[in-house]
Design a binder for these strands. Structure first.
Lengths: 198, 198
DNA sequence: CTGTTGACTTACCATTTGGTAAGGCGACTA
DNA sequence: TAGTCGCCTTACCAAATGGTAAGTCAACAG
């Protein structure tokens, strides 16, 4: 059934996000569902394929989301800015997925040898194109605009993923204040860097 | 012997960086060394304790390194800027350690329940103090300066960790150009944000 | 009524996991 | 010479790993 597959994918997202590909077990994925580990294997064939479906799901959602935002703004600079703000909001709203994508980045070296699939590429291309559409950045050489895109991507993902660490380190209250101000700080970072020109 | 311990820690750094805490096995750590898995257990007691020593090693080195840089500059803003540039260089020179710290961030939620140790705290405190020493940032409320520190930390770590992914995605040549310009772009990001004030 | 198909199960399997137990062995001490 | 201490080994272990084999059972088709 389609719904069963869906439930497996959702559960797998959590497990892979929390333990990484190598640390996750398909038994753990099935554990909280009213199905056995073999039902999972019946639907997906292998752990690797299940992981692939999870990644594809995330990549598709993100690409679609950013696409919608991109169409809401015509002015390149505003589009760039709002897309990254939206990316931050989306990442914050889906910390599991954010963590999983970060793990994929880390596991990639090892996994690339066998899997060879690049789920992040369409997402990165979308963002790089966005940067290239800003007049002042178009002429930048040596991938200066791409570097900035990557800096923002890192700043956003790293912060979102740090929630458990930061809230324990600084206490829930201080962390909430930090998180409340982060979006504003992100906006300032983007505008001040863009103002400086390429 | 001290040297044997050292070799175990070095090997463990690689294995933990590549597979994460859960995905790594102590057998894999001993595999490339002329000792058995039990020799490892004899020295460190458990996988958890070995991991702890590895993290402590990294944290100590980083803190010491940043301390040296901090003392080379008296003017707060220059000190802030140079410290982050140095942090970038250090991260780039030690990609294994960078990846491992990132994994620690991701694994932390799970691991915190049992281990409760915060290896990253001294490092973060050093950087936060650095930001607080900048006059214009001292008055910032809601942790605006800390947010900026975290953004830089994320931008740096994320980029360093992405080397395998990026060089495969864009090709070795394009990636090298990107990497060659990254430090300069980082500097621009820092100065433009600081110029904007808090 | 029969055959087939798809979802899901129980029963296994070899391999790997982190860890324990016990002992060999060289060096140093009484 | 006997004792003991630290480093490291072989011999195990129960539990968990990803995956295979062989079914059960309901729905549906002829």
């Amino acid at each position: 059934m389609t719904e069963t597959r869906e439930r497996f994918i959702q559960a797998a997202t959590t497990v892979f996000a929390e333990r990484g590909f190598y640390g996750a077990s398909i038994a753990a994925v099935a554990e909280d569902l009213p199905f056995t580990k073999q039902a999972l294997l019946h639907h997906f064939g292998s752990k690797e394929k299940l992981y692939g479906e999870v990644l594809k799901r995330i990549s598709d959602r993100l690409t679609a989301e950013l696409d919608v935002i991109g169409k809401r703004h015509t002015e390149p600079r505003a589009r760039f800015e709002e897309t990254f703000i939206e990316f931050y909001r989306s990442s914050l709203a889906n910390p599991r997925e954010t963590a999983l994508l970060m793990r994929e980045l880390l596991d990639n070296k090892r996994r690339a040898e066998t899997s060879k699939s690049w789920y992040l590429k369409p997402l990165l291309n979308t963002l790089a194109d966005l940067a290239a559409s800003i007049p002042s950045a178009r002429l930048a050489r040596g991938g200066a605009a791409l570097a900035f895109v990557y800096q923002l991507l890192g700043a956003i993902s790293y912060f979102v993923v740090s929630e458990p660490t930061l809230s324990t380190m600084y206490g829930d209250q201080d962390f909430e204040a930090l998180q409340a101000g982060f979006e504003k700080q992100l906006r300032i970072l983007i505008t001040s860097r863009l103002d400086a020109g390429f």
